[in-house]
Write a protein that binds this DNA or RNA. Structure first.
Lengths: 246, 246
DNA sequence: CGTTTCAATATGTATATACATAATCGCCGT
DNA sequence: ACGGCGATTATGTATATACATATTGAAACG
């Protein structure tokens, strides 16, 4: 018979995900040491009561990620470990500037309340529409622009922000004092300044800039997405690493 | 009829690989700009004359790598920051490139043994003079330069490197297999490409680049200082954080 | 006029199947 | 004892199919 039983239906994630995380867990916890042969595909097929394709996809992904190594006719093996983990502080621009011995001040450029569009939702990681706050501001070191800030605030998560003008105080410090964040993600890249950025930062269009974008969650709720644009000369990020176990 | 026609049989790689690399290429070359909707699965199915599963697997992998974003009912789109989703790990460029479905290869440009000068010692954090190795090489994604590597190796800490040519293997993987590192420091910034960098990476002078510098120690001894220069489009760093206690 | 409902559509995930390919094991003949 | 060769086995890659799910756009409704 050719009926397809869809097994899923558990509250959690997909079977694919479960296999992935189960095996990753065993490897990262050390339960399966490097060199250990993990069960054959057909054994996992039995264990998870699923097809070989499903197991195969999960194992292929682990192989691509470098966690395991696959050998025909022999099976799949736990690879020698790589290290990871970063420590890079949530940077407060005021502190950075003052550490340079310069006077800090902040200036709001724009403030706009509106309903979220698809792009906003992608940036914030929102699933449903809702209202949000869009804020643009400039951080100064002495008389020179130091960084441009462009920020989205999810008003469903932080309704109090609706009444804030953010004309004197930057949204970052304001949020930190109010919303306990549980997680953040940074994306760091280089970019050429476009017209409006160049104008705000008082640099030439096309000049290289460092862009740091941060998304913050509080208990699973997206809170804010902020983009800092620094002229290339004004900023270097520093991060220190130590290898995680062996 | 239920016969399965195996189409493969071309001298090159698999169909999966071909789809992956075709699309990666179009995106990295800029032919498909951010926001552009790439063809629907069923269209690619026709173009490559294959099943939806095959296309789906390739697109899913690109989504995981961060190159595209998939939206139900709407299609798949080129993402804003051309990125790959590897966390700011000890980044192995080969793995990054291969995750995009592109062929990786490395090419050594220069190799020089010399006594350290003041600048070298500053970069490595050395107090006394000594001999070191200066290596410059290019990492390729397909035919396109992906990153320029400039490296100093402290020969007092790694004397075995004296006899290595590093013409085929990059120094990174070589060192990892040999020297247990205990600490590393990263500096990240943006920079305009100068003449020589632009020439090596095949971009315009003045184009924005992301620069990642890493200094590595092994038991208090400086081992190596390496600088990776990425064209702005080819790379985004991603880092995740959770607050250290509260 | 706004809202609710519903069908169409594209992706997400799973199944069963088929055949290719690489590596290994064991048999066999010299 | 040794070298070669074929059978076995595990993974690699593709097909066709089935149904779930999210989102959009248009029709129906109050």
């Amino acid at each position: 018979m050719s009926t397809v039983e869809t097994v899923d239906a558990d509250g959690g994630g997909s079977l694919h995900q479960r296999i992935l995380s189960d095996i990753s867990e065993k490897i990262l916890s050390g339960a399966w040491a490097p060199g250990h042969r993990i069960p054959f595909e057909h054994e996992l097929t039995t264990e998870y009561n699923c097809s070989r394709m499903t197991v195969n996809k999960a194992l292929s992904q682990l192989a691509k990620a470098g966690l395991i190594e696959r050998r025909r006719r022999s099976g799949s093996f736990v690879r020698q470990p790589r290290s990871q983990a970063a420590v890079l502080e949530l940077h407060d621009i005021r502190i950075e500037v003052e550490a340079l011995g310069l006077a800090y001040h902040y200036e709001r450029l724009k403030r706009l309340k509106r309903r979220s569009n698809a792009e906003d939702r992608a940036l914030l990681g929102l699933s449903a529409a809702g209202s949000l706050l869009w804020i643009e501001g400039l951080h100064f070191a002495g008389e020179r622009p130091f960084a441009l800030e462009q920020r989205l605030i999810n008003l469903s998560a932080v309704p109090e922000a609706r009444d804030e003008e953010f004309s004197e105080i930057a949204a970052g410090p304001w949020l930190i004092g109010r919303v306990p964040w549980s997680e953040a993600e940074h994306r760091i890249r280089a970019m050429a300044a476009d017209e409006s950025v160049a104008d705000a930062l008082d640099i030439d269009p096309g000049a290289p800039c460092l862009v740091v974008e941060r998304r913050t969650w509080s208990a699973e709720h997206p809170v804010t997405h902020v983009r800092f644009v620094y002229p290339a000369e004004s900023h270097t990020l520093v991060a220190r690493f130590t290898p995680s176990q062996g």
